[in-house]
Amino acid sequence: MVELAQKSSEARNARFGRVVSRYGIVLAFLILFVILSFAHQNFLSTGNITNVLRQVSINGILAVGMTFVILTGGIDLSIGSVLAFAGIVAGALVTGADPSNPFLAVAAAIGVGALFGAVNGLLVARFKVTAFVATLGMLSMARGATLLISDGRPVPNLSADFRWLGQGFVAGIPVPVICFALVFVIAWVVLRFTIYGRWIYAVGGNVRSARTSGIPTRMVTFSAYLIMGALAGFAGAILTARTTSALPQAGLGYELDAIAAVVIGGTSLVGGVGSVVFTLVGVLIIGVIGNGLDLLGVSSYYQQIVKGAIIVAAVLIDRSRNAQS
């Protein structure tokens, strides 16, 4: 009897440990949320929640793309530069006396981003260049190209229709948040319910067995970078609309925040394991920390330390989870 009771309590503890490690990051987010709600009276105001969601939407869109890439076992360091290039392209189309249709500009930004993504994808999938190196090279090239086409100067005077994309509202919800929500839901459906989604996980999990089971592994890897590039272009258009000019120095270091969100969400850097839902939690954690510490008037230096500590903690939780399973 006693033995039995002990065993079941052990089992319960083990189960409890699994739940904590699986949902630890969600728990951490909730705790953070509650603390900030008490720490500052305006944190929970509708205005601030809208504010945080709008602030995270750029990084959110990038992190969704990054989840695809990291699930295949890759990485994309070039997205900040690709975002800036796409922003300049979109800006150039909607500036001046005769602006193009804003949707054309967004489509152009997405297209240009996808083009950069395709080059990354070719280098990694076809020519077997390490993703880190291929995209590091692209980070530099895309930034140089951005400065070249913009002559190092912002593109001002964007049409009001285009700026709506960054500053407008639909039914009280900021347009960037709607864009992010759409991207997120589509990505979640694709990864969760389609064959293609399963291929992404399979390629990252074990590329050799994926190939033997008939999965077009090269195409799948290539497509992840293509999606990432397209989303970086989309984010570039939204950021440009938010800052009211296309800035050649936009997006510096954004790749790191996107990777951080994915890693905090527990997606494994070796690929095959993870979920875009947890990436969303990672995005929210980074956003809420930045917002909360700003509200409390804490130095931005501390924000960087806190963000770094959470990344390391997330990886440690991830490791203990892997050890258990």
Binding site: H40, G47, N291
Partner: peptide, 20 residues
């Protein structure tokens, strides 16, 4: 606070200050 001469950083910072 510093926004490092950056438009995007200043945008977020002042948004948060207005809320707080």
């Amino acid at each position: 606070r510093t926004a490092n001469w950056s438009r995007a950083e200043a945008l977020t910072l002042v948004e948060n200050w207005l809320i707080s």
